[in-house]
């Protein structure tokens, strides 16, 4: 009889273990959902428009003229295939410049290029905040930042 009671107890504990295991997954998935909610909210701002680049002029055809380039919060520009925006122009350095979205604004930073990066006709010396509609020049390639 005591044997039976012990067995029932053990059985209950075994079910308790399974319940805990499932509960643990539930805990994970709940936290996951709130995390995903935050992430997709952040992503929504990204998608709607932290911005995009329009290729205004590109003599070598890479990137092609008139093309719209989607850009992420960290976008590298340069003559390196690793760059987010690959630019084919002999006057452009491998790692020419870095476009970053911080808080609510875009910043452009020259990465120590040979021939410089220009915004609206001015060569930039330090990171500058951009407005939508600003024109970025690297070598002979001109890009416009749009929303």
């Amino acid at each position: 009889m005591t044997n039976d009671i012990l067995r029932i107890l053990l059985l209950a504990l075994q079910f308790g273990f399974l319940a805990l295991l499932v509960g643990l997954l539930w805990n994970f998935s709940r936290t996951l959902r709130s995390d995903l909610g935050a992430a997709s909210a952040a992503e929504a701002t990204t998608r709607e428009g932290i911005g995009r680049l329009i290729v205004v002029e590109s003599p070598a055809g890479e990137p092609p003229e008139g093309r719209t380039l989607a850009i992420g919060p960290i976008t590298s520009l340069g003559r390196n295939v690793n760059a987010t925006v690959y630019v084919e122009d002999d006057f452009v350095s491998a790692q020419q410049a870095l476009l970053t979205f911080r808080g609510h604004a875009w910043y452009l930073e020259d990465q120590g290029s040979t021939n410089g990066t220009w915004v609206n006709g001015h060569r930039i010396e330090r990171p500058v905040a951009l407005s939508f509609g600003d024109e970025i020049s690297l070598g002979k390639v001109r890009l416009r930042l749009e929303r």
């Binding site: 504990l13 075994q14 273990f17 805990l20 295991l21 643990l24 805990n27 936290t31």
Partner: peptide, 15 residues
């Protein structure tokens, strides 16, 4: 997230 894990595993050992 870790807390239920820390409960679960020792219980499993004992069981």
């Amino acid at each position: 997230l870790l807390l239920p894990v820390l409960l679960l595993v020792p219980l499993g050992f004992v069981l």
